[in-house]
């Protein structure tokens, strides 16, 4: 568009609209810079919300129970871990898994864990490292499933927080109906 065809008022409105957007962007980015930076560098985005969650309140007289939590793992670490024999575990629902999942992943939806855990334990040795994922973007299912698997005695449980979307966008191989 040629500025010469715009009246001074419209030019001013356009300029102010651009300034308004720039200001909102500056505010949004300054308040969320860590989240955006982590997303673009492939690091865990939801760290404060999930991985550093405060422990549940306990009464002073209750015995202190050691709660084990899964460790986070980044996209660039996955290749080495998978080469060493780690197993990818998809914590999303069975329909999403059937449509598309990370190559080599097995399905263990958090919502069906009670029904499917016995079969999973029968097939997977407890010493084998597990890499859990779900839908990224703050999806807590992989973390919750990780806590459960640690309680069941699995020794090395990791959570790939970027999950399915980060893997897909990195162009890594997928399997499924799609």
């Amino acid at each position: 568009m040629n500025d010469r065809h715009l009246s001074p008022t419209l030019r001013r409105i356009l300029l102010e609209a651009l300034i308004l957007c720039a200001f909102a962007m500056a505010v949004g980015l300054s308040l969320n810079y860590r989240m955006v930076l982590n997303a673009f560098t492939g690091k865990t985005v939801t760290g404060p919300k999930i991985f550093n969650a405060p422990p549940a309140e306990q009464s002073p007289t209750a015995p202190v129970v050691e709660q084990a939590f899964p460790d986070p793992v980044e996209l660039e670490e996955l290749d080495g871990l998978l080469t060493e024999g780690a197993l990818l575990v998809d914590a999303r629902n069975a329909i999403d898994y059937a449509k598309s999942h990370l190559q080599g992943a097995v399905s263990l939806p958090l919502g069906e864990v009670d029904a499917r855990l016995a079969a999973f334990i029968a097939q997977v040795p407890k010493e084998r490292p597990l890499i859990l994922y779900c839908n990224g973007f703050g999806c807590p299912d992989s973390f919750d499933l990780g806590v459960r698997l640690l309680q069941e005695g699995f020794q090395e449980v990791l959570v790939f927080e970027g999950g399915y979307p980060q893997w897909r966008d990195a162009g890594l191989p997928l399997e499924g109906e799609k």
Binding site: L20, A24, L29, L31, N32, Y33, M35, V36, V45
Partner: peptide, 11 residues
């Protein structure tokens, strides 16, 4: 998606 989520609400 995170970039959009960081900016859009403030606009």
């Amino acid at each position: 998606n995170y970039l959009v989520a960081a900016i859009l609400p403030y606009i």
